[in-house]
Amino acid sequence: MEKVKIVEIKKSIFENNDKQADNLRGELKSRGLYLLNLMSSPGSGKTTTLIQTINLLKDKLRIAVMEADIDSDVDAVKIKEATGIQSIQLHTGGMCHLDAEMTRQGLDSLDTDGTDLVILENVGNLVCPAEFDTGAVRNAMILSVPEGDDKPLKYPLMFSVCDVVIVNKTDVMPYFDFDLEKCREYVRMRNPKAVVIPICARTGEGVDVFASWLLNEVRNWKQ
């Protein structure tokens, strides 16, 4: 057998990212800029929810959006057309998540002068984005009714890192076996501090509750 020399490393592969994320958060605090990281499965209604929320808040706050996807710019274009706010597309180059460094690069290419709130729409995925701290002030996730009320049991990490869980597509609840109370219970098991907000992004129902939560968050961050 070939003789080998061992070099001890003993280092978590998330360590660099966690440090960069903390640095970024510190910088955002000093600039009074609030960054929300929005996560979900593909097709849960992230973009529609954002459009509704932005339209409720754009007279009160200056908002910009970063759309992260593996490819295409359909979401960034859609947001810009529907709300008129600044929106850019980030490509992850095949990666299933954004990390703190990619988030910083995205922020650097935005014009954030006078901006109060930047929303990062993460790659649609319930596993990887939960493991990489982006440097955002808060994490939000959308769980849509057709996905089922048991998602918090299947993707525990995602639900334990989220400060707010938006339950979307409540209008189709009669057609699915989705129990909102059970869902709240499952979320609470993972994360007792998470706020659960049921909405229907298509009709706009409940979006005002999420918008007020966000407005309040941004104002507190600036103090």
Partner: peptide, 22 residues
């Protein structure tokens, strides 16, 4: 009880690297 938390088991760390000794 449900009031439990993970002590360890979510590690993803590089323990060491092996280098040919010549």
């Amino acid at each position: 009880s449900e009031h439990t938390y993970l002590l360890r088991g979510n590690e993803v760390e590089i323990k060491e690297i092996e280098v040919p000794d010549d």
